[in-house]
């Protein structure tokens, strides 16, 4: 049976480690809306590869430090 994969992320932790960066500031840095950053943090939206790389660049880390695969079931 195929295992379901979920994309987890460390966006919230990374924001606070970067001077308590606001969702709005991150959204502006990566060219997205605050609503999208909020949805990503809540695990309600898996961003495209391009946006994922832009978020990683905004924190100065690799994309794997921001997003992780989580297997469910």
């Amino acid at each position: 049976m195929k295992t379901k994969m979920k994309i987890g992320n460390q966006v919230r932790r990374l924001r606070f480690e970067h001077g308590e960066m606001t969702q709005q500031a991150l959204a502006e840095a990566v060219g997205a809306t605050r609503q999208t950053v909020l949805a990503i943090e809540a695990g309600k939206y898996a961003p495209s590869l391009e946006l994922a790389f832009r978020i990683a660049d905004a924190f100065g880390v690799g994309v794997e430090a921001v997003f992780q695969r989580e297997y469910v079931g």
Binding site: A27, G31, A32, T33, R34, Q35, T36, A39, Y45, P47, S48, E50, L51
Partner: peptide, 8 residues
């Protein structure tokens, strides 16, 4: 104002 992004 917020520009439309990929989620929109």
């Amino acid at each position: 104002r917020e520009p439309r992004d990929e989620r929109d």
